[in-house]
């Protein structure tokens, strides 16, 4: 059951979200946390996670900026957007930039676990 070779990056400026990912996936995957976009890009560069759960609304470099950067640099990493506010155009744009899924907060643990196991199997 343990799959510590698979690394997941969680990017969110909210401590509650980071904590909930910790309890949800921390016992199965190698989790790395970032609370802003710059940190996220740095970790993606250095630690090469397989999957990123990326929040959109963050101060400074936000989720969409990070996604654009990854798209431009053609990084081989799967990105799932997690957001509190849903907007069709944001979802469309995210998907056009390579996001594989778009999850709405409050998150459903079933969705998160399913995506993690699918991507990292």
């Amino acid at each position: 059951m343990n799959n510590f070779t698979k690394r997941i990056l969680i990017v969110d400026d909210d401590k509650g979200i980071l904590d909930s990912f910790e309890v949800l996936l921390g016992d199965r995957y190698d989790l790395v946390m970032a609370d802003n976009g710059y940190e996220a890009l740095r970790i993606i560069e250095t630690e090469q996670p397989h999957l990123v759960f990326l929040d959109i609304k963050m101060p400074g470099l936000d989720g969409m900026d990070v996604l654009k950067k990854l798209h431009e640099e053609q990084k081989n990493v799967e990105v799932v957007i997690i957001t509190a506010t849903h907007r069709e155009e944001t979802e469309r744009e995210a998907k056009s930039l390579g996001a594989i899924d778009f999850l709405m907060k409050p998150l459903n643990i079933v969705d998160v676990e399913r995506i993690a196991s699918q991507v990292l199997s």
């Binding site: 969110d12 909210d14 509650g16 979200i17 904590d19 909930s20 990912f21 309890v23 949800l24 609304k57 509190a84 506010t85 907060k105 409050p106 998150l107 459903n108 643990i109």
Partner: peptide
């Protein structure tokens, strides 16, 4: 205000929901 409100409520809600679901 709505976007701020959504963000500020849904983040803790999401955390609570995850903890409760687990």
């Amino acid at each position: 205000v709505s976007a701020g409100l959504a963000h500020e409520i849904k983040n803790p809600l999401s955390a609570i929901k995850t903890f409760v679901a687990l």
